[in-house]
Design a protein around this nucleic acid. Sequence first.
RNA 1: CGGGGUGUAGCGCAGCCUGGUUAGCGCGCCUGCUUCGGGAGCAGGAAGUCGGUGGUUCGAAUCCACUCACCCCGACCA
Length: 508
Amino acid sequence: MGKKSKSAISPTREENYNEWYQQVVRAADMAENSPVRGCMVIKPWGYAIWENIQAGLDRMFKATGHRNAYFPLLIPKSFLEKEADHVEGFAKECAVVTHHRLVEGPEGGLIVDPKAELEEPLIIRPTSETIIGASFAQWISSYRDLPLLINQWANVMRWELRTRLFLRTAEFLWQEGHTAHATEAEAVEETRRMLDIYETFIEEHMAVPVIKGRKTESERFPGAVDTFTVEAMMQDRKALQAGTSHFLGQNFAKASGIKFQNAEEQEQYAWTTSWGVSTRLVGALIMTHSDDDGLVCPPRIAPEHIVLLPIYREDEQRVAVMAVAEKLAEALRAQSYDGAPMRVILDDRDLRGGEKNWGWIKKGVPLRVEIGPRDVESGSVMVARRDKGARDKESISAEAFPERAAALLADIQQTLFARAKAYRKEHTKVVDSYEELVTYFTPENTKRPGIHGGFAMAHCCDTPDNEAKLKELKLTVRCIPIDGDRTPGTCILSGKPSEQRVVIAKAY
RNA sequence: CGGGGUGUAGCGCAGCCUGGUUAGCGCGCCUGCUUCGGGAGCAGGAAGUCGGUGGUUCGAAUCCACUCACCCCGACCA
């Protein structure tokens, strides 16, 4: 009888979380797999979200004195070899350019011209520390050149073995900040400042709560002295590293020769940092807020804030309804939300109402506004919020609505953040023994493991031995939190004294 | 890269074991009529070199070999 299941997305989160994720991406038309192994095509709706992430972060970077620049996609192999840990970390997942010409093959088609082999292979950047370091070495000669605060919006490539749209793709888009400072203290401060910016942006713009913390030794960025992270909890209660900020000490400065003369006429190596977030944030957004009806977009990051859905049957109604809808669209666009004109779309496509409505639900537009003949007559509109049920609508006076819209959007933004925070709180547990840890991360039904576990807050010291024990349970220390409880205790794995509790979880 | 699985119309699948005339079904798409504050009904229509290459055979989506891609579970990772 054409009856649809209760939810727009099948399977539901509870039924099969991984498949649900893929279906949400598809239903919202955000991205799809490409003919190229491990690489995705980001479609307009997904890209618009990324653009909003870019715009918000870029403003914050500029406000803290950073400037954008662009460096080559290709890095000479010898550059990558300069920093020992760095080589080890990335060598396994590099795409390499070895030739510069194709010629016609003996059996047709094209083959790589063996005569066109490069003297030195070029690596498609997995990250740009070394190539940017080479520039920094040239740009910096005096303490007066410091600090040097540079950011690059770019694509990078890491030859991942298992990929998932937005969460892990062979090629991904990101920003990478690279800075050089005269003193260690300044560089450490910069590392923390950018971590704070990530926290602010991800929580306030994306409504995704994060835990700021320091990474353990094994999770540290290759070549870094210290790595900081913001960790978020997804709805399957796994942790997702949403952004990282690295204090690189003088490691890369020494590798690239970034030296300067200080006021005392001494030659010194600079102290550098690097920090980045990627299109993975789009994945974090999806997995934090979306429900079984599809994507739920926090207003500040949504490609469209409000969709107007005219309802009519005959031409006569169409004229009346469209006149009101167009006027309303204009009035809404004159309003501002989050410091910019409201993003409003009037959907006048020749589709049936239900289909249109569900289409926008799946795309996660914060507010849907229906305007039909009855509304025109009564001077009202039906308003539905994406953070509420699909059929939950409120009649609002058409005249008053534009004035109220910004407040409604702000309320949705706030509700989504509060909801995500409550979810994380509900699934964060203080754990005081190994047995408790095992129990917490063991599903009730091991044959069909449902969503279980969460963040375990436990005392656990940073040793390879402990790391191995956690790995048996498929767990990792996500971070050593910076804020919050610093009470010392006893390590649940080794029994030794521990400075503070850490976040233990399964991770993406 | 190890173990398992899948590639047939835009999407989801059947057919394959037991080779045999023009390769089906559901959704979607297009057209028409009827519907319409909700993911419609009826009728008609368009769309596929059955992942690729080679082999066996009178004949291959179907059997064999190789290969590529994707998915799930590991290992690796933003």
